[in-house]
């Protein structure tokens, strides 16, 4: 299905930079409500691109379009030269686009079980091979489990590897999702509010993990986050959405001073130039 190899199994070499992710004039409407109106932006290869905006701005809708859960009314999404629009979610995943969810969505079982789901597109063992425990399937499972353990260590979940996810703390469960997405060995990682609802220490830890994996694995990251401190410290570029439109675009510093952004976030133009942590995190209803 995918011509991609799994770079992790070959050791810790740095893979070729990922292709650019281009969003071109994407429009999504729900029964008359325009959730996204001709939104365009490009996630440059290997960069961290933040997508910010108040609740209901269309950030999560945008993620759902990128991962194939929604089909846009018009516009295109391209990964390099491959068109993603219209592909089924599992095909997009096979092309190396992984995502996390705003609400934690994990599977019953241990951390290891959950992370192994992330290896799905990189593995082959089918029903017959697994049922009969053919040597190939067993070997594959073992090799990938080793790599998954490495990823667990990298994301600070090494100690919880065999713990059922349901017993973990909120912050750890959220990190399981992040680690699971990394298990796809993605070229583009979509993070939907990775630190929402976390306490300060957990936030700092997740921020560290994100910058560490980006440095080590060389992937592009598209980040939706309300925590402006995190956005400002991690992002290379920021796109601001409000009511489904792009209102500003630029480096974190440029965006911070943009009058439209201040109005969207604070309701009054020209107020405090550093909106700390704007709306309550983790309550985005879209």
């Amino acid at each position: 299905m995918s011509a991609r190899t799994s770079p992790g199994l070959a050791g810790d070499r740095r893979p070729a930079p990922p292709p650019a992710l281009r969003v071109q004039d994407v429009t999504v409407r729900f029964a008359g409500l325009t959730a996204l109106g001709a939104v365009s932006f490009t996630v440059a290869p290997g960069s961290v691109h933040a997508l910010i905006g108040p609740n209901g701005a269309g950030k999560s809708t945008c993620f759902n379009v990128l991962s194939g859960l929604y089909r846009p009314e018009s516009g295109r999404v391209l990964l390099g030269d491959t068109e993603l629009t219209g592909l089924a979610p599992h095909k997009i995943a096979a092309l190396g686009v992984a995502r996390t969810f705003q609400n934690i969505v994990t599977t019953e079982g241990t951390v290891a079980d959950n992370l192994m789901v992330g290896r799905h597109v990189l593995t082959r063992a089918g029903f017959a091979a697994s049922a009969l425990r053919l040597p190939g399937a067993v070997r594959e499972q073992r090799a990938h489990r080793d790599r998954v353990r490495e990823i667990a260590e990298l994301t600070g979940l090494g100690d919880h590897f065999d713990t059922p996810v349901a017993l973990l703390s909120y912050g750890d469960r959220k990190r399981v999702e992040l680690a699971r997405a990394l298990c796809l060995e993605p070229r583009v990682l979509l993070l939907d509010e990775p630190v929402a609802g976390m306490n300060g220490a957990e936030r700092a830890r997740t921020a560290e993990v994100v910058s560490a994996v980006r440095a080590r694995l060389g992937l592009s990251v598209l980040l939706v986050e309300h925590d402006m401190g995190l956005v400002m410290s991690l992002a290379d570029e920021v796109t601001v959405l409000d009511f489904g439109r792009t209102v500003a675009h630029g480096t974190p510093d440029e965006v911070r001073r943009h009058p439209e952004v201040l109005r969207a976030y604070l309701g009054t133009p020209g107020a405090d130039p550093a909106p700390a942590a704007a709306p309550a995190p983790g309550e985005d209803p879209v």
Partner: peptide, 14 residues
């Protein structure tokens, strides 16, 4: 098991 617990999450996992 992944698709039982969340169809959406399973599909984006491939």
């Amino acid at each position: 098991a992944a698709l039982r617990d969340s169809e959406t999450a399973a599909s984006v996992m491939g």
